[in-house]
């Protein structure tokens, strides 16, 4: 165990020199650049994450704006549709009213025309009947006047008729 627990000055010397030299070289050539790169990278990642977060927020803001716009457009469309429907309804009902009035008017005119025609026809018929009656009466009278008896009788009946009136 002597060799195990004793300290050799030579080994201590070489270990010190070797460790110091390598520690110095590593610090300059390895740890410095490595730690710097690691820091830069972690900084870079942090920046990228922040950037992404900001972009996400902007995006959501933009999206909210889009939605607002879309909603407005939809409302506008609905409004226009409603207006158009109302307009259509009013046009249709106006037309219907006008048509009804027109038809009523035409029917009325037709009815009046028919009445007039009827009246005229009746008048004409009356006149014809009157003329015919006069003709018949003339013929009858001529026949009766040719016979004095008959003439006399007629006179008397006529006079009677007038008197009764």
């Amino acid at each position: 165990m002597d060799g195990l627990l004793s300290v050799s000055y030579g080994t201590v010397f070489w270990a010190t020199v070797a460790f110091l030299v390598v520690a110095f070289l590593l610090k300059k050539m390895a740890w410095g650049p490595i730690l710097k790169s690691l820091d830069e990278r972690s900084q870079g990642i942090e920046n990228a994450l922040n950037e992404a977060e900001r972009a996400r927020q902007e995006m959501s803001k933009l999206q909210a704006g889009n939605e607002q716009l879309l909603r407005e457009a939809r409302d506008e469309r609905d409004r226009i549709l409603v207006e158009a429907k109302a307009l259509k309804d009013s046009i249709v009902s106006d037309a219907r009213t006008k048509a009804t009035e027109e038809s009523t008017r035409i029917i009325e005119a037709a009815r009046m025309e028919i009445d007039n025609q009827k009246k005229a026809a009746i008048t004409e018929l009356k006149n014809q009947v009157a003329t015919l009656s006069v003709d018949i009466a003339e013929k009858l009278t001529r026949e009766k006047l040719s016979d004095s008896d008959k003439q006399k009788a007629l006179n008397e009946s006529l006079i009677a008729e007038i008197r009764s009136n």
């Binding site: 390598v22 070289l25 050539m29 390895a30 410095g32 650049p33 790169s37």
Partner: peptide, 10 residues
């Protein structure tokens, strides 16, 4: 070895 590896890594 450590020096070689880490200078390469750097």
């Amino acid at each position: 070895l450590v020096l070689f590896l880490f200078t390469r890594v750097a």
